[in-house]
Design a protein around this nucleic acid. Sequence first.
DNA 1: TGATTGTGCGCG
DNA 2: AAAGCGCGCACAATCA
Length: 507
Amino acid sequence: MAVARSHDLRLCHAILRDTELINGEPELRTHREWDAAPVVEVAAVPAVPALFDWDGGIVTPGIPHGVDDALAEFARQRAAIDSSAEAGRLRLLCAAESAGALIAVELRAAGLPWDVEEHERLLVEQLGARPLAGGRPERMTQLADDIRDALGDPKANPDSPPQLLRSLHRVGLAVESTSRWELRELEHPVIEPLLTYKKLARLYSANGWAWLAEWVHDRRFRPVYVPAGVVTGRWASSGGGALQIPRMLRRAVRADPGWLFVTADVAQLEPRVLAAMAGDLALADAARGGDLYAGIVDAGAVGTRAEAKVALLGAMYGATTGDSGRLLPGLRRAYPRAMRLVDDAARTGERGGVVHTWLGRTAPPPGGRWHAVRAAAAEPDASRADVDRARRQAADRGRFTRNFVVQGTAAEWALAWLGDLRARLAAFPPVPESEPAAEASGVRFARVPHLAFFLHDELIVHTPAASAPKVAAAVQDAADAAARLLFGTFPLDFRLDVKIGETAEKE
DNA sequence: TGATTGTGCGCG
DNA sequence: AAAGCGCGCACAATCA
């Protein structure tokens, strides 16, 4: 039995409590019990939790569970939305947020199909034999020896940045840190084994045998998704590092026998969202060919695709120097509306003002310390340091609000995409008894196409092989529907890169 | 000793 | 190439 619609009282409370699109609403603000963050007792959650099995161990202390409390809060939230001049947007935002919350639970229940043997093969191939007790894997041990030899320092320790830095200085390498980008520029016999060591050390500690044992059970990776865990509305994750599955490991993501993956990611989501928000027809036009960056080059705003990318990222992140800063005037000439939108958001933030996303999620206002720093700089006897500090924090906040409006609206688009797709997938017929089922995905999903992973602008659907082409079409249809839902008839398409395969490899 | 902070690297 | 957004995680160093 699948839930068709939901309203997440806690997440919507947070949106409505903070939104700029409603003024006042003291009723909502006085009910602070809805502000409590959920505490999910992960350890108590069974490997394949049933969706609404409240014996399953998901505990959310601090939130009233009584039906009367819930209904009262629901009524407050509806009244708040209805009284807003932007009721349509807020209604949409709450619906999208709630659908996302439901999907986050379902994603964890279904899990991402994981090929443990392939993962282990990969570890042995890269790291060498698994250490028996506490030591480093074979290849890392060899590389550590090579590093010590090259440095002529039998005590050199590649795991400790400060120690390593001293060792590097002793052989005359004038670096300020031990980070990869700085080391890469140097010519010295230690560099190659050291960079290799760092790469392997990362794999070993982040996604090695210990990770596998902790996070992959029953051939499924089940991360904990945290909807709206980021201030912009993006999801965060807690445990398992779901936001950082390294590209290398993607071939360990393998569909069940008789099943396939449909993987899809949106090409240049944030620039497209910016074009739509700003109503910038020229930028929308650049996006029409599918490759937005190529479109910017064709329009003559910059010289190369690489420049287009760096310039646009710089515009959304608030770059001022370097290549990106140098390219901004060209962008400003070609796309004045889009640039004005992000520049305005930055100026508002610098002044201490508040900005909001397309659907009304509002950035947190600056805190007391921020105002104190600004006030100190405005005093007649303010020191040079006071003034510099205030200027720096204003610029920092400007970059944050500049990015907030775009990143946050992109997150809203992605929620609409997910929610629409969920409904489309629910309409697929279950596979017949004679066909293989995805048992590990749980009873809800074992026989139907289902979402298996989501990350900002990318999703993976696990589907019976026969349904894969129709699922791929549904994924694109959902993207089109999301675009219409947020931006109506604005002429901009959201191009997806859709792939059907047994693994989730990108290239 | 245990909690906090900093570094480095992975992801979008 | 390493500025310019948002994260999580592991590990070492540092502080209490």
